[in-house]
């Protein structure tokens, strides 16, 4: 508990009496720390909102940040730090938005000539402000973590596009290092796209994959076998020279899987298979 009920009342009084001056000073302090990266209008609105909700909480005799009547204040703080986190401000810059209130308050409290009770008040006020600062810190950290998790997910989405490139042909251009989790996502998405589009051919292009290890090769091979079970054929394209060497030296058996030098060659191959099939009406035999 940061404040006593009396202290809470006195701080509410102070915030009410010098409201406009405190908000202005508070806003100026924050504004200088953010060096113009946030519009003055938006900043003023945020500080005004903070001031209002803080005052509202104190008017109801809130004795700490986690008091029941301070729920609105906590919401405003959380929203502020969430916004700061998403806009790319640092944790310090976010916390200063709250701590700047201390300086603004100090202008209206005569500390030098005052007695111990004024000192006690000031210490109590700053205690509350510290709590507020800590909450912004915590919310900021959480928001950043969410941001990182979201981005990781987006990256997974981004890095594994499965596209239909021709009638009956879908392609997945793999880019970057493939770990097990990603390989699994690619595998599932590719197979689902085959079903959704009714495409009997899939091209797995690994031009953008820097290295292949046994596990990744296994995932690709399993995808090919699974696609076959579903009635679709896979073509692997873009195997780089050093990857071909790795595959051979690891003793990975590609068997009768069709491999092509480039995505274009693979597409040509898939089209020829389809073209010949429709033109000559002869079957593609399977073991």
């Amino acid at each position: 508990m940061a404040l006593s009920a009396d202290e809470s009342a006195r701080l509410a009084n102070l915030l009410g009496q010098y409201g406009d001056q405190i908000v202005k000073r508070w806003t100026d302090n924050v504004s200088s720390s953010l060096a113009g990266r946030l519009s003055t209008a938006e900043l003023s609105r945020q500080i005004q909102e903070l001031h209002t909700s803080l005052r509202a909480a104190l008017d109801q005799r809130a004795v700490g940040l986690f008091d029941e009547v301070a729920v609105e204040l906590r919401a405003v703080l959380s929203e502020l730090s969430r916004a700061r986190a998403r806009q790319g401000f640092t944790a310090t810059e976010t916390a200063i938005s709250v701590f700047a209130l201390k300086d603004a308050l100090l202008e209206h409290i005569d500390v030098s000539g005052a007695g111990p009770e004024v000192m006690r008040d000031y210490v109590a006020f700053t205690g509350l402000i510290d709590e507020m600062g800590l909450l912004t810190f915590e919310t900021y950290a959480n928001a950043r973590e969410e941001l990182v998790a979201d981005q990781a997910e987006q990256l997974l989405e981004l890095s594994t596009p499965v596209v239909k490139i021709w009638e009956g042909v879908v392609a997945v251009p793999l880019v970057g290092t493939l770990d097990s989790a990603r390989a699994q996502v690619v595998m599932e998405r590719l197979l689902q796209t085959l079903v959704d589009t009714g495409s009997p051919y899939a091209i797995i292009d690994i031009t953008g994959v820097p290295a292949v290890d046994t596990q990744v090769a296994q995932h690709v091979l399993k995808t090919v076998v699974a696609a076959r079970l579903m009635g679709a054929d896979c073509i692997i394209s873009g195997i780089r020279p050093q990857i071909a060497q790795t595959i051979v030296s690891l003793g990975i058996e590609f068997g009768d899987i069709v491999t092509k030098a480039s995505l274009a060659d693979a597409l040509r191959h898939a089209l020829r298979l389809q073209g010949i099939e429709t033109a000559r009406r002869t079957g593609r035999r399977e073991a």
């Binding site: 595998m187 599932e188 197979l191 085959l194 009997p200 699974a226 696609a227 079970l229 009635g231």
Partner: peptide, 25 residues
């Protein structure tokens, strides 16, 4: 009409459905 999840599971199980021809639909 074999579902992707079924196909993935069969591969893991080690079942190759020897002698069966398949199609998407």
């Amino acid at each position: 009409g074999m579902r992707p999840a079924v196909a993935i599971t069969l591969v893991e199980l080690g079942l190759s459905l020897q002698g069966i021809r398949t199609a998407l639909n």
